[in-house]
């Protein structure tokens, strides 16, 4: 007990005000799950699930998406536990539950581990163990490979670590089919290539934060000019990769039209950032557009599958 002992009734009986009991609410724990990140993860997981051949029972599909969401949230909680020291010195993250003192690090660790075990176990028992294995790999990759290893050791942290965020379509596909195929791997590759441009746009805006926290993000280690060039490079690769589903016979004309329009917008913002050194507001516009890009691209993919649009070329 950390608090003072007092004689509450004046007769020598002891009690304490405010014992060492957590003040964390359910909302604080929910915040550990990084709900905004979770929503995009669920959406891309849904794309993998919908694109898979065959019809999945809707309850099983719901269970799969719930487990993907909880698993992603669990890895977020583990990341917040491990990165609490970094979060405390960064403006963007200083108000997160651990640095603000609302949740104790040990509580976040326990919460993350329990949810990881439950999400993987439930997916395995109720859906299949291939998807559960992929979900376990995703959590491990984000919490251990990215958070504990890459983030503090290399400027390529977000490039390699982006694989964790790219995995949900593969988990969704595996939940529906019990196996993997080229189509979900193309979706994984697309998100993998999209992540650097998306994240470095934010890192440009927050480079001072990362420098203070000693995190070797690209703008800190290689400078902003090199980061802007790399953003354009990865944007070109992402836009090129967005046409691969159509070329391989997984998508039709509407998807190609949406991919072309969105790709033009993505490239426009990336080049604008390249040509406007120091304009961090423009970098944040690119960050915002990159989220819209991925969301609409996968919406087009899901909509085409739902409406049974014929692929551009025969698979």
């Amino acid at each position: 007990m950390s608090d003072a002992t007092i004689d509450i009734d004046g007769k020598g009986a002891e009690t304490r005000l405010g014992p060492d009991v957590s003040v964390a609410t359910a909302g604080d724990f929910f915040e550990l799950l990084k709900p905004r990140v979770m929503s995009l993860v669920v959406f891309t997981g849904l794309a993998g699930l919908v694109a898979a051949p065959g019809v999945m029972n809707p309850i099983a599909a719901f269970v799969a998406l719930l487990c993907i969401a909880v698993g992603a949230g669990a890895s977020g909680a583990l990341n917040m536990w491990y990165d609490a020291d970094i979060d405390a010195v960064m403006t963007r993250t200083a108000r997160r539950p651990i640095p603000s003192g609302r949740v104790k690090p040990q509580e976040a660790l326990t919460f993350g581990l329990v949810l990881s075990a439950f999400s993987v176990g439930t997916l395995g028992v109720l859906v299949n163990w291939v998807s559960a294995g992929l979900l376990a790999f995703t959590i491990f990759f984000y919490a251990v490979v990215y958070s504990m290893w890459l983030k503090r050791s290399t400027s390529q942290n977000i490039v390699i670590g982006g694989l964790a965020g790219a995995m949900p379509p593969a988990v969704g596909w595996a939940a529906a089919t019990g196996s993997l195929d080229v189509a979900p791997l193309v979706m994984v590759a697309l998100i993998f290539l999209w992540t650097p441009a998306h994240f470095w746009a934010l890192a440009l805006y927050r480079s001072g934060d990362y420098a203070r926290a000693n995190v070797p993000m690209l703008p800190v280690t290689a400078g902003e000019a090199e980061t802007r060039r790399q953003i354009v490079l990865y944007t070109v690769l992402t836009v090129a990769a967005s046409f691969v589903p159509a070329a391989l016979g997984f998508a039709g004309v509407p998807y190609v039209a949406v991919a072309a329009l969105l790709g033009a917008g993505f490239l426009y913002y990336a080049v604008a950032v390249l040509r406007s050194p120091g304009d961090h507001k423009l970098a944040m516009k690119l960050f915002g557009f990159s989220i819209l890009y991925l969301f609409l691209l996968f919406t087009a993919f899901i909509a085409e599958t739902a409406f049974g649009v014929a692929p551009l070329v025969s698979a």
Partner: peptide, 15 residues
């Protein structure tokens, strides 16, 4: 010196 059960603060009870 009887030890009474430690009461929670209102914030702790709500949480």
């Amino acid at each position: 010196h009887d030890i009474l059960p430690t009461p929670l603060t209102p914030a702790q009870a709500r949480a």
